[in-house]
Design a protein around this nucleic acid. Sequence first.
DNA 1: ACTATATACTACCTGTTTGTATTATTTTAT
DNA 2: ATAAAATAATACAAACAGGTAGTATATAGT
Lengths: 127, 127
Amino acid sequence: MRILIYMAQKPEELYTAKFLVEKLNVSDKYLRRLMTDLSKSGFIKSTQGRDGGYTFAKEIHGISLYEVIDSVEGMNKLNDCVLGFDECSCTNPCAMHNEWVVVREKLNQLFTETRLSDLDFERISRY
Amino acid sequence: MRILIYMAQKPEELYTAKFLVEKLNVSDKYLRRLMTDLSKSGFIKSTQGRDGGYTFAKEIHGISLYEVIDSVEGMNKLNDCVLGFDECSCTNPCAMHNEWVVVREKLNQLFTETRLSDLDFERISRY
DNA sequence: ACTATATACTACCTGTTTGTATTATTTTAT
DNA sequence: ATAAAATAATACAAACAGGTAGTATATAGT
């Protein structure tokens, strides 16, 4: 999220791994691994070799927070049963089910509706 | 949560550790540790010795899900900055701050407003 | 006294998250 | 050719969550 949001400030720019590592304060290897994952997920594309780097593979207007979270860590933490039961549904609910579906839906809605282009870059002071 | 919700079905009853261990499928030692924590937090009270056990220390109408979660694991996971920055506020927001406050408030509200007595015990099929 | 119960403390285990480190390979502009 | 860049695969490490296990002690009803 931090990488993509940082890049979304200037979506047309080409960013090198080295540059992003400095800006975001993470290790080189870790960032590169994430970049490769983000490439495979289709959010960004890479150009190898000298003068290479990363840039968005599609319009940032078309990238929701939901898609990003889902591709990086999956949405199961949010959408699985909050008490950990394998089989838990509205017809066979756990003790928290009915309360949790309300929250779950709110979160899914927020993440699905918010796109990288919706962020207020004027206000953000940390990436 | 599972323990307290189970007990809330019959809030006046005295429950032994052994009984709850069988009903909730957790280890004896683990449950006892949790019970001691819940006692210290004031949700339940214990009577030692033969014919002892646990029962609620106050009305279940007065116990919100917020209080329970807060006493067991703290609410910092929810209320700290979602991107992990130490100093993150509305005047100094991280990239996700403005989106996250909406969710945060919704969750806090739900957990604060829902009390053990509000659960629909008729419908619940797993504890 | 005996027995059934809770308490306390400590150590351990297993998996996950959130990264870091190492090493070697491939690609491309100049 | 060379240098600057991305790629790939693997191992490691620290912190934390979610438990389990052991052992000994305290309490209270009969």
